[in-house]
Write a protein that binds this DNA or RNA. Structure first.
Lengths: 95, 95
DNA sequence: CAAAACAGTTTATATTATAAACCAATTTAT
DNA sequence: ATAAATTGGTTTATAATATAAACTGTTTTG
């Protein structure tokens, strides 16, 4: 009847992050923060969770002298997102 | 950019309950439990939350000698569900 | 009549999301 | 030059949430 929803993706902020990453090659912390309007702390935590799950890959380094974190979606993340969207459909009113 | 998701609806079980109720005039506790495969406790709690929010109306009584709980979606619930579905779209990959 | 089943409710627990507090470096202002 | 603010984050604390376990009262069934 209802397909279980991947709890990692069924989260407002993580879903927003994935939504941003799916259509872009890569995005940095500052960009994600701006687009999601999340606090740094929250964003940092959720990026870590997506990264630990293998849904995104994260590169931390320096841009000049400032720290710089870049995220990109992995193939696994892409698959998970597609599966999540499919699963969601089982909950949504048809048409 | 992203429309906030009503936290009351952004919950697997509550969304399933709403999904069942939207297409049916009314549904009882046993039916919802069977269709959602939730535990009684969880279902009871989530029904209460939806009811407190005014998203569903709940009638508790007796069917013969057995307790019998019936739920139906309110107009407010219907509106909230539609708004939630619209909001969700801002997070989902287009097309 | 004891045990299992029905239809739930209440309570406890474990997880989660989120923000607050913090850190290290760098600008900017005085 | 140095104090204050800003940048780009991380860590930790707290509040909220979801969920299951335990319980209640009635009613069948063995």
């Amino acid at each position: 009847m209802f397909t279980p929803l991947d709890p990692l993706l069924h989260s407002e902020l993580r879903l927003a992050i994935m939504s941003l990453l799916v259509s872009v090659d890569e995005a940095d912390f500052v960009y994600l923060k701006e687009k999601t309007a999340a606090t740094s702390g929250n964003l940092s935590v959720q990026i870590d969770k997506l990264s630990s799950a293998g849904y995104i890959s994260v590169t931390k380094g320096y841009e000049g002298k400032r720290p710089h974190t870049t995220c990109r979606m992995t193939q696994q993340g892409r698959n998970a997102l597609m599966a999540y969207v499919e699963a969601l459909k089982s909950y949504l009113p048809k048409q």
